[in-house]
Amino acid sequence: MAFGTDTMTKDPILKVERLSMRFGGLMAINDFSFEAERGEITALIGPNGAGKTTVFNCITGFYKPTMGMITMRQKSGAEFLLERLPDFEITKKAKVARTFQNIRMFSGLTVLENLLVAQHNKLMRASGYTILGLFGFPAYREASRESIELARHWLEKASLTERADDPAGDLPYGAQRRLEIARAMCTGPELLCLDEPAAGLNPRESLALNALLQEIRRDTGTSILLIEHDMSVVMEISDHVVVLEYGQKISDGNPDFVKNDPRVIAAYLGVEDEEVEEVIGEIEEIEGEHGGPGQ
């Protein structure tokens, strides 16, 4: 069923199995399964309205799926069933962080404060759930200093150090996107879910984003799952691409495979209905000859 899936998969960080999401009479996602490898960048693409953001919202707990199982497996081996956790615990316990398609920052807080809010749970513990911190215990002061250091680290990575003390709402669009990623990284995630991180970026910013994402993966080993329309980003950095159309998976494999998959081309460019049958017939022939593509 899965075209061109890498058979070498060993250690998936996220396993989505038979996910379905129904909104009233609309089947937004229908029996969708895929796996994201640990340490890889997995891209979820598809035409507008294919259900990509719905998949994201199911993974990050903002929607409860109608059916299906979403398993997050941490480095330590701990497993979490994400469809059963409330949204904030998915970030807190399962260590899945996300960004939003329409940026959601705390615009009245400074850039630095945005990153400190992201370290809320860690700081809450350090401050003895506020009580010890209120009396000025040194443990909290220490943790507070560390949290600023972590924020400084991510500000440097996202090249926002210059703007650290400015209100987040004052940043230009591209910088707000980077801030959102930096903020998500400050929660210390193992899986980072990015919803269209390159939307609205100019080509130069888009290149910088590629570099940032690759750096995140290389330096922290964080796995990345991203929704993206900008093919230059998808094809450049992702190791694995999953294509969604009308809530169903139509292709799954490495970028080269997906790029040449006639179903994907048909989904994006559109073909006549009869032609689709033809095209599928052709693929099956090719698969028969080569023993399966994507290898």
Partner: peptide, 20 residues
């Protein structure tokens, strides 16, 4: 303290708070 920052963050954007 984290709780105070969380209050202000809640004022700014509740959904973003939950995502963090």
């Amino acid at each position: 303290m984290p709780i105070g920052r969380a209050w202000e963050a809640l004022r700014e954007d509740e959904i973003a708070c939950r995502s963090l």
